[in-house]
Simulated assay, not measured.
Amino acid sequence: MTGRMRLAVASADAETAVAQFAAGLQEGLDRHDAEILNRQFAADVVWGSPYGALVDGYDHLHPIHVQFQSHPERAPSARYEVRHVLAVAQDVVIAHIARLVLDADGEPVAPASDPDLPFSELAMYVLVRRDGQWWLAAGQNTPTRPGGAVAAT
């Protein structure tokens, strides 16, 4: 594609930053602890929910996650998987991370069209490094449904 700008930059630690971010999400989910789940979220994080709501700021988002985590019996087991990492600056990374709902055997559940069933999702996260620490600046979750796009390469 001639004339089209490439934004990717070499970043020695982008993959590590995203892997650590995903591990923090996993730990928070596994422990049903919103403090752990959100510990990497910036004060001015902007969050897009899977249903189109926009939540502006940690102080608004955190209570929502506290509510979700307070009912572990309603939450299916899930696993986070890093799908794609793109460093667009030394201190800015865009990552796609899947949250896969698991069955009783620990295997991902096939996507379903029924909105009342637990769903997996793919999220796009923007991580920004400040003073040596990576923070979530923005996230957007999208439910995984049958007929979704093919995986990025």
Results as ranks from 00 to 15, higher is better:
Met1Gly: 15
Met5Ser: 13
Arg6Met: 12
Ala8Trp: 05
Glu15Gln: 15
Ala17Asn: 10
Ala19Arg: 15
Phe21Trp: 12
Phe21Glu: 04
Gln26His: 04
Gln26Ser: 07
Glu27His: 10
Leu29Ala: 14
Ala34Ser: 13
Ile36Cys: 05
Arg39Gln: 13
Ala42Glu: 03
Val46Arg: 09
Val46Lys: 03
Trp47Arg: 07
Trp47Ser: 06
Trp47Phe: 15
Leu54Pro: 00
Asp56Thr: 11
Asp59Arg: 14
Leu61Lys: 05
Ile64Asn: 10
Val66Asn: 02
Gln69Phe: 12
Gln69Trp: 05
Arg74Thr: 08
Arg79Trp: 10
Tyr80Trp: 11
Glu81Tyr: 01
Val85Pro: 01
Val85Cys: 02
Asp91Thr: 09
Asp91Pro: 02
Ala98Asp: 15
Val101Tyr: 13
Leu102Ser: 06
Ala104Asp: 15
Ala104Phe: 00
Gly106Thr: 03
Ala110Gln: 12
Ala110Ser: 13
Pro111Glu: 05
Ala112Lys: 13
Asp114Asn: 09
Asp114Tyr: 04
Pro115His: 08
Pro118Ser: 01
Ser120Trp: 02
Leu122Val: 11
Met124Val: 14
Arg129Asn: 08
Asp131Ser: 11
Gln133Ile: 12
Ala137Leu: 14
Gly139Tyr: 00
Pro143Trp: 11
Pro143Asn: 14
Thr144Gly: 10
Ala152Phe: 13
